[in-house]
Simulated scan of single mutants.
Amino acid sequence: MSTALPRLSSARVDPLREIEILDEYGARRRILIPLERPLTIYVDKRELVTLMTLGAQPELLVLGYLLNQRLIESPAQIEAIQVDWEVGAAAVKTRAGLAEIEARTAQRVVTTGCGQGTVFGDVLSHIEAVRLPDARSARISQGGLQAILEVVRQQDSLHRRAGSVHGCALFEGATMLLFVEDVGRHNAIDTIAGWMALQRIAGADKVFYTTGRLTSEMVMKSAQMGVPIVVSRNGVTQMGHELATRLGMTLFGRAANRRFLCYTGFERFDAEPLPPPAPTAVQLVVGGAPELARSR
Rank of each mutant, 00 (worst) to 15 (best):
T3E: 01
T3K: 12
A4F: 07
L5W: 01
P6S: 08
L8V: 03
L8T: 03
S9E: 11
I21A: 08
D23Q: 07
I31F: 06
L32A: 03
L39P: 13
L39N: 11
Y42W: 07
V43H: 03
D44A: 03
T50W: 06
L61F: 02
L66Y: 13
N68Q: 15
A76P: 08
Q77L: 04
G88F: 10
T94Y: 04
E102K: 14
A103V: 05
R104V: 00
C114E: 13
C114G: 01
G117T: 05
D122C: 05
V123F: 13
V123K: 08
H126R: 14
R131K: 14
R139Q: 14
G143V: 04
L145M: 04
A147Q: 13
V152L: 14
D156L: 12
L158N: 02
A162G: 00
A169Y: 09
D190P: 11
I192W: 05
I192G: 02
Q199L: 03
A204G: 14
A204K: 14
K206H: 11
F208Y: 10
T210D: 11
T210Q: 11
G212H: 09
R213M: 09
L214M: 15
E217F: 04
A223M: 14
G226H: 06
G226Q: 05
V227Q: 13
I229K: 11
V231A: 06
R254G: 14
R258S: 04
R259E: 10
T264P: 10
G265L: 01
E267F: 05
E267H: 12
T280I: 10
T280F: 06
V285T: 13
G288L: 03
G288C: 06
A293H: 13
R294N: 01
